[in-house]
């Protein structure tokens, strides 16, 4: 028993040490800016910016090949944050503030082809072959990929429904108290 535990522990420590040394010699210097930009991006890998994922978008931003306004789900707030981090000025007037949306399956038209399930970047769609699919709205982040692949146009993007869980008071409108 002791020999077994001891020898396995010894092996683990030996390999761990060797790998630790190896990782020092084989370190890849990554651009720290890329990691910071990637942390700012939503990280949902929706691909609406035209890049494969948020990591690729971050490296394009760092290399100056993409505009800070590239991320539709991020909206103005993210564009401003990215521009500030990159030290560039950005014109926010042409970016529209998108309302949060989730996918909605029109059950009359859904044929259960499962194409949307394969494209969903957050596994928010559930359903089986030839069964009507549905959306788990808590997980859906509204990238709209499923709406694009749906062959019967059964999926549409709808504003997030207001429920008891996400309802909140409106912010006070200062104009109301001006006069």
């Amino acid at each position: 028993m002791l020999t077994a535990v001891g020898s396995l522990a010894m092996l683990g420590v030996t390999f761990g040490t060797l790998l630790g040394i190896a990782s020092r010699y084989l370190r890849v210097d990554e651009n720290p800016l890329e990691a910071e930009l990637e942390a700012l991006l939503p990280g949902s890998q929706c691909g609406q910016c035209g890049f494969a994922g948020c990591k690729q978008a971050a490296s394009a931003l760092a290399a100056g090949q993409a505009k800070p306004t590239l991320c539709p789900p991020g909206g103005r707030a993210l564009a401003a944050a990215l521009a500030e981090r990159l030290g560039v000025s950005v014109d926010l007037s042409d970016t529209e503030e998108l309302e949060p949306e989730v996918a909605f399956v029109n059950e009359d038209i859904c044929i259960g082809c499962m194409r949307c399930l394969q494209d969903c970047s957050s596994d928010a769609l559930v359903g089986g072959p030839k069964q009507i699919h549905t959306v788990i709205t808590d997980i859906c982040h509204g990238c709209g990929k499923c709406a694009k692949v749906c062959p019967t146009e059964a999926i549409e993007m709808r504003p997030v429904p207001i429920t008891l869980a996400n309802w909140h008071w409106h912010k006070p409108d200062p104009r109301q108290y001006m006069n």
Partner: peptide, 10 residues
């Protein structure tokens, strides 16, 4: 494999 991964990445 870990070692190979590091080496390939480098």
């Amino acid at each position: 494999v870990q070692f190979t991964e590091m080496a390939v990445r480098r």
